[in-house]
Simulated assay, not measured.
Amino acid sequence: MNKYNMKHIIKTSTLLFLSCMGMVAKGQQNIQFTQYIFNSMSVNPAYTGYKEEWFGQLGLRSQWVGIEGAPETGTISIDGVVDPNQKRHGLGFQAIADRLGPQSATSLYANYAFRLRLNDEDTQRLSFGIGAGMTQYSLDGAKLRPNDQVDGVIPAGRINSFIPDVRFGVYYYNPHWYAGVSVMDLLSGDQSNNIFRWDNTTTDNIRRRRHMYFIGGALVNFNSGLKLRPSVLVKEDFKGPTSVDVNALFIFDNRFWIGGGWRTGVTVFKRDYARFTGNKLSKQNSVSAITQFYVTPKLRIGYSYDYILSQLSSVQNGSHEVTLGITFGQRSNRLLSPRFF
């Protein structure tokens, strides 16, 4: 195969190599949001309807600012309960657009959650969720500059592939803590070891990987005006290092949230890559500053900044993420447990 001089994505290729210091590129393709803690439907369909009000959120993430072709992601979602009295059925919709150099993915999902009431006070629920949708994977050959201009391996223009997808999840919560587990991208497949390998008829090799997620957290009350909300997210694809996000946020007067997070890799299972690297990959990834503010009881704004800890830090300016959340309609009855998760 010919060697390529990809002028428009050379920096992207470099960052993907360097990012292996924190996560192996072949094993961690899934979209990543630091502010999943404000709306976990993106990592678990069983979360759908948790707030028991209709809630819409817009999220924009610019990763590794300063590197040409670095990941850019946008998402918009809405979810709520369709039976406001019993609150047993959650329904949600989500659209995601993700771009990395010459490749992109646009996804649409519909999520449903069946929410079991576990006590008379209705402060505990066990939810079972399913999500179904479609992703369009694209590769734009016009953004690549090979040495051989007539090389038939590179597509002349944009090629697309539509892949259906299914996801499942379970989510439990009470006023003091929550936990959930989910399996995502079940139909996306895992057919390639190289996301930058393609041909003229398929984009199978840039599909997302199947992932399993675990989320958990708690709420600690110090007094009437101050709370602490620690949380953890574990991402597992059974190929690269297991990724762990640990976050802690202070909540002031139920309106202003501020805190930070740490993202790293841990070795849980023996991996194939260890044969080639000697399992010496640095697992340092990033630290984050996170904040959220309720402008009104129905409107919230969130911002986070990720600072890279690996060798990638010398060639980029961190990652920025902004979210905007809006609650719709009137409450049918009083929420028995404020929604801090």
Rank of each mutant, 00 (worst) to 15 (best):
I154W: 01
P155K: 07
A156Y: 08
G157L: 07
N160M: 09
N160K: 14
S161K: 14
S161E: 15
P164W: 07
R167G: 03
F168T: 14
G169Y: 05
V170I: 15
Y171E: 01
Y173T: 00
Y173Q: 14
N174R: 04
P175N: 05
Y178D: 00
A179F: 10
M184G: 00
M184I: 09
D185T: 04
D185C: 06
L186A: 09
L187A: 12
S188K: 13
G189Y: 06
D190G: 02
Q191K: 15
Q191C: 02
S192T: 08
S192M: 00
N193D: 10
N193V: 11
N193S: 14
F196M: 14
F196D: 10
N200Y: 10
T201P: 00
T202A: 08
T203C: 09
T203R: 03
T203Q: 11
N205D: 11
I206H: 02
R209C: 05
H211Q: 11
M212G: 13
Y213G: 01
Y213I: 04
F214P: 03
G216C: 05
G216Q: 04
G217E: 00
A218H: 02
V220A: 10
N221C: 10
F222C: 08
S224K: 13
L226W: 13
K227M: 11
K227R: 13
R229T: 07
R229P: 07
P230V: 00
V234N: 02
